[in-house]
Write a protein that binds this DNA or RNA. Structure first.
Lengths: 194, 194
DNA sequence: CGTCCGCTTGACTCAGATCAAACTTGGTGG
DNA sequence: CCACCAAGTTTGATCTGAGTCAAGCGGACG
């Protein structure tokens, strides 16, 4: 795995989390930015009425809580979704690297800009009302331009949630699209045809 | 208005756009990052099947196409939604500022991180299926913690689109919530009660 | 004074959510 | 190596809430 954040390798600390273990809570002082080395971490926000809203699920190879650099407290909880290993990039080490090395800063900006693009794409998908069209659009985004093929590493159930459909609807749409000849499917691998 | 991007003021150029005028097109070489000084610019992406998807509407005081810094071509069209005036921050001037001034770089990173947060919040809202609950959650996000009150500067019609509802449904939900005593409404000003 | 646009309300329709149940797969532990 | 359990996948039946279409009001602006 290439470096996810420009912290000097010697300053990175590692931590293993058991399933359902809490990394930080909403309101805690921010001390670090994190990257998932192995496993999965989910972020949830608590509302004033006691309910919780899922914000984001960070998978192996992703970073999270970048905003900690710019905020005194975390604005959500981070909980291990399964046994996980994470990288800890302390605010001091990371911000020092960003201040002192323009290349590092550049890489980090690029990283954030990519996230903005990705999130906007996610929102675009949600702006499409029709389930089949939404799914097709999503697949076009995920698909490699050349191969017209995606292999999801997570359950389709989770993908359904990502695009804002129940898993039942998602499965149904996929069968219909396959019947139509719009896609071809083999387990978690989907190929866009024509 | 405070500076939106750390380009040296002398290097910023200005441009007036008439309604429906195109600033750049998908596939064009990236030459600059932009900020809206007055007016409104909408970004739309073209799909292979000829249809278009609205990505984002950039309002007065917002920046757009930050990702141009890191990409050789624009990935969407930018069109003036009304008569507008925009700031042009050339890639060279802006990236030079970011490279040479760690403070500028820091500000830009913070700017991007805030966008990430905002976009994630938008997605959270979309994960709530029930229209009334979605509206309430959205209002909680928009509302000033103290005053529990928001005044929208744009038509409620546009707000409805932002949160993924038709304007009819949005208006209906607002009346119902007001009838319930959950909110109080006065034109574009909405107060959360209890 | 007329036109545009935001706002509002009503009636109807249907796509996707919900509830339910069964089958498959994968991993765990004995 | 098999029994078992949890989780993902699939399909069916039903229902509901948000979208759609339609129509009228009122304020802003030229």
């Amino acid at each position: 795995m290439s470096r996810l954040l420009p912290t000097p390798p010697s300053a990175i600390r590692y931590l293993k989390l058991a399933k359902e273990e809490t990394l930080f809570r909403q309101g805690d002082q921010t001390v670090a930015v994190f990257a998932v080395k192995q496993g999965r971490v989910r972020l949830v926000r608590h509302l004033s009425d006691g309910s919780t809203v899922p914000i984001y699920v960070s998978h192996s190879g992703n970073t999270f809580s970048e905003a900690a650099l710019f905020s005194p407290t975390y604005h959500c909880d981070a909980i291990a979704d399964m046994d996980s290993e994470i990288e800890i990039h302390s605010k001091e080490a990371l911000s020092q690297a960003l201040y002192q090395d323009p290349k590092a800063a550049w890489a980090f900006m690029s990283h954030l800009a990519k996230q903005v693009i990705t999130l906007r794409s996610r929102l675009e998908v949600r702006n499409i009302r029709s389930a089949p069209e939404r799914v097709i659009y999503f697949l076009k985004l995920e698909t490699n331009e050349k191969a017209m093929e995606v292999t999801f590493v997570r359950p389709l159930k989770d993908i359904a949630a990502d695009i804002g459909l129940t898993h039942e609807t998602f499965y149904r749409v996929l069968s219909k699209l396959e019947a139509d000849g719009t896609i071809k499917r083999n387990g978690r691998t989907i190929t866009l045809l024509d």
